[in-house]
């Protein structure tokens, strides 16, 4: 076990250092995208654990990200590490509440409840207008980057650090007793119960861990954007997260990374394509807002039909064939 942990640590540090090195090769905008992808990765890694390894679907992870983001926005700026820790804590608590309900529900009912959680976010921010400032949201005064590093590079480092911590913790959890229990419950609840695994408790725990990751991702979103508004955490975000983990490859952390990268690059790529096409202004206008959603949906259908293992599954198969 210790050896596995050490190996994970080595891989994490190596990966994070490689990405930090990468930030020196990228222009500011690509660094910002890298930072966004890393922030997404915190959430998608947590979600892929929940769905892929524990068999619970959540359409509420956007809302859990919102709890993290708003926590950072509402706490005094200056001690970023502390407010990020608080954000994870708040999201964990929110996750525990939702998780307890979730452990009693299955399939579409579970999806329904978590969907409701997502719908509550804009309602809460509007009702408690004095605190959350409604749709306009709050600004986040993150401490500025040190003088010797470009602001976007600094943001990328912060997000990479968050993603690295998330992946390290999750990789170890997956290899531990908890990971085995999560998988056992996913595969067969009755068999798991017979083997002495407390099913409900295992499910709640998976939800809580997943929520903590979402909270961290949300906190990083707040830091990167220097502002928080409910529209960031709309139903679309929750759906995008779900799409990302399925397209990336359900149940694998590498798949979560692919998904996170896709969430950042795909809308951008689509915009470049529509930009290059000689479309009428009217059609171009209608496309810019809606095309990414359509492409994502189509990709999801194709992936589920053709490569159920997602991008990561495809990659693994390709590597095997090469050997």
């Amino acid at each position: 076990m210790a050896r596995v942990g050490l190996r994970h640590l080595t891989v994490t540090i190596a990966g994070a250092s490689a990405l930090v090195g990468l930030t020196y090769l990228l222009d500011p905008f690509r660094n910002y995208q890298l930072a966004t992808a890393a922030a997404y990765l915190c959430a998608t890694a947590g979600l892929t654990l929940l769905i892929g390894l524990n068999g619970q679907v959540s359409l509420g992870h956007g809302a859990l990200m919102a709890t993290g983001a708003y926590t950072v926005a509402l706490l005094p700026s200056g001690m970023l590490l502390l407010s990020v820790a608080a954000a994870v804590l708040v999201a964990t608590l929110a996750g525990a509440v939702v998780g307890v309900a979730a452990a009693r529900l299955r399939g579409p009912y579970l999806a329904g409840v978590t969907l409701a959680v997502t719908m509550v976010v804009p309602a809460v921010t509007t009702m408690a207008d004095a605190v959350f400032h409604g749709d306009q949201g709050l600004s986040v005064a993150a401490p500025p980057a040190p003088l010797w590093v470009a602001p976007e590079r600094w943001q990328a480092w912060q997000a990479i650090a968050a993603a690295a911590v998330t992946l390290f913790v999750l990789a170890n959890l997956l290899r531990s007793r908890f990971g085995r229990e999560w998988r056992a419950v996913r595969d067969d609840e009755v068999a798991a119960q017979l083997a002495g695994i407390p099913v409900a408790r295992t499910q709640v725990l998976a939800f809580v861990v997943s929520a903590a990751c979402a909270g961290l991702g949300g906190a990083m979103f707040a830091v990167l954007a220097q502002s928080v508004s409910p529209s960031t955490f709309s139903l679309t975000l929750s759906l995008y997260l779900l799409l990302a983990v399925v397209v990336g490859g359900l149940g694998s952390l590498a798949g979560a990374a692919w998904g996170a990268l896709l969430l950042v690059l795909l809308p951008d790529a689509i915009h470049s394509v529509t930009d290059g096409l000689p479309l009428g202004p009217d059609l171009a206008q209608r496309l810019t807002g809606n095309l990414p959603l359509a492409v994502f949906g189509l990709t999801l259908v194709l992936v589920v039909l053709a490569v159920p293992g997602g991008l990561q599954g495809l990659l693994v198969r390709a590597v095997r064939r090469l050997r």
Binding site: A14, A18, L253, A257, Q312, V316
Partner: peptide
């Protein structure tokens, strides 16, 4: 798994660098 993870990382890096090369300064 480590091999795969490393491969993923490498592939991702290449992708991002390639994308970055498109932007000029």
């Amino acid at each position: 798994t480590i091999l795969h993870r490393g491969l993923t990382l490498a592939a991702a890096s290449v992708l991002v660098i390639a994308a970055a090369a498109c932007g000029g300064g």
